[in-house]
Amino acid sequence: MNELVVQTAGLTKRYGSRLAVDRVDLTVRRGEVYGFLGPNGAGKTTTLRMLLGLVRPTSGTATVLGMAAGSPAVTERVGALVEGPGFMPYLSGRDNLVVLARYRRLPVSVVDEALERVELSGRGGDAFRSYSLGMKQRLGVAAALMGDPELIVLDEPTNGLDPAGMAAMRALVVDLARSGQTVLLSSHLLAEVQEICHRVGVIADGRLLRESTVTDLLGTPRVQVRAEPVEEALAIAMRLAGDDGVQVDGAELLVSLPEERSAELVRALVGAGVDVHSVHPSDRSLEDVFFEMTAVGGGRPMSEEKVS
C-alpha cells in the first residue's frame, strides 16, 4: 500500500499570466482510493491532465507508475475519464469502445466486459448521441476500465447519474480498490468521497492545501455541551481537552474529545456544580472541513454551490 503510483514534485502549470497549478506535491499510493477535492477552477482537472500527458507542465515533475507522466508506456496502464466522456456521437457506444480497444491493441472481448460492468450491454448498439447524460458517463467509465488498468483516474464519475447509478458507481470504485487497482477520484460529492476514499488531497487556487487520510483530515471528534455557567464549564473543559481543544459557540461548548471521554467530561462538570443541559457528539463531516479549508461561501456550503 505504500508504493507510490503517482508522485508529483513542484508540479506547475501556467497559462499566460494565470497560474492554474502551483507547485503541487501529490502522492497516490498503490491500492488506495484517493479523493482529489477542490472548488471549480481550483486546478484539479489541469493536474489530472498533466498526469495523463494531455497537458505539459510549465515546471515540476510528475511520475505515474514509476515513469514520466504521459508516456505511452504509462498511459496504456492507466484508465481515465477526464472532464466528461468524449466520444464519436455517430458511433454506437460499443463501436466507440471498439475503436479505443483497437488503439490499445486489446481484444474486442474487453469491450463487452466493460459494457457489462457499467450495465450498458443492453444499449451498447445504440448511437452515443442517443444516450442520456448518465449513460454517456457510464460509457466513459467503461472506457477507463478496459484492459484492467493499474491506475484509474475518474474525474467526476457520478456526474449525471441518478441515485441508483451513483450507488452503483460507488460500489464499483470500492470493488476496484478491493481488486488491487488504484483509483484517483475527483468528485464534488464530499459525502461519497468521505465514504469510499482512503486519503484525500484538497486543492484551491492551484495549490495543494492538505493531503492526508480522511480520518486525519476530520481531526479529533468533538462533543457539543450545553452547560451553565459557561465560564465554569469552559475552564473544566479546557482542563480536559487543552486550551486549544475548546471552542465557545454562544451558550454551547465544542470540546475536542473522543466520544468515549464524554462521560468523564460530564462527571467533571457535574462534580463542579455546573448544570449540564445536553451533551452530544458533534462530528465534522468532510464537507465541513472542505469548506473551512477552501472558504467557499464564507466557510459554509452555499445551497447550490457546486464543488468540483
Partner: peptide, 16 residues
C-alpha cells in the same frame, strides 16, 4: 471534429 467531441482526449488517454 474530435476536438469538439472530446474524442481525441479520450483516445490519447488510452495509451497510444
Amino acid at each position: 471534429s474530435g476536438y469538439g467531441w472530446g474524442s481525441w482526449k479520450t483516445i490519447l488517454t488510452q495509451g497510444p
